[in-house]
Simulated scan of single mutants.
Amino acid sequence: MTTMHDLALRTAGALGITDDAAHAALETYRDQIEALEGRTIDPDDISDDDAGFLTDAVRAAQRSGDLGARETAALEEAAADFARASDDLETARQVRDAAILTAARAGVRPKDIIEITGLSRARLDQIRRA
């Protein structure tokens, strides 16, 4: 017999996931067993058979990519946000560099361009040579 806490710690260690992720997955599968079989599994007194089944279910979920669905969705959203921000940054850099060239060609002193943009003299020279 084991507890849900101890089972989560063992499962986390065996699968290389956080204790919280293991606990959440184990709870999900415990709830499913209880609903399917119409019985209650005491989280403070889990039989060896139930513990083995629960651990195997989490292991199978990890292998199939079903573990961490919320985290996967959050990662996909963050990656998309990052890609959009990177595109926006590149566009803003191009607009800034064009404004620098226009200002330099209009006679604005390099010192003033550097003060306004915060760029180094070396970077300003690179932009002007491009």
Rank of each mutant, 00 (worst) to 15 (best):
M1H: 09
M1P: 11
T2Q: 10
T2N: 04
M4H: 07
M4E: 04
H5K: 15
D6Q: 01
A8C: 02
T11H: 02
A14H: 11
A14W: 05
L15E: 03
G16L: 02
I17Q: 00
T18P: 00
T18I: 00
D19Q: 11
H23W: 14
A24I: 06
A24N: 06
A25N: 04
E27K: 15
T28F: 11
T28P: 03
Y29Q: 10
Y29G: 00
D31K: 12
I33R: 02
I33D: 03
E34Q: 03
L36A: 15
L36C: 10
E37K: 07
G38A: 07
T40D: 12
P43Y: 07
D45S: 12
I46S: 01
I46A: 00
D50C: 06
G52W: 03
G52P: 06
F53N: 13
F53L: 15
L54P: 04
A57I: 05
R59A: 12
A61P: 09
Q62H: 05
Q62N: 04
R63E: 15
S64G: 12
D66M: 07
G68N: 03
A69L: 07
A69C: 01
E71N: 11
L75A: 12
E77K: 13
A78S: 10
A78G: 00
D81F: 09
D81M: 10
A83T: 09
A83Q: 10
A83G: 01
A85K: 09
S86V: 12
S86P: 04
L89W: 10
V95K: 13
V95R: 11
V95H: 09
R96C: 05
D97W: 02
D97I: 00
D97H: 06
A98D: 15
I100S: 00
T102V: 14
A103F: 03
R105N: 13
A106F: 08
A106S: 14
V108A: 08
V108Y: 01
V108E: 03
V108K: 04
V108M: 09
R109L: 12
P110D: 01
K111T: 15
I113Y: 07
I114C: 04
E115A: 14
I116K: 13
T117F: 05
L119F: 13
L119S: 04
R121T: 13
R123K: 12
L124A: 02
R128Y: 05
R128N: 07
R129Y: 08
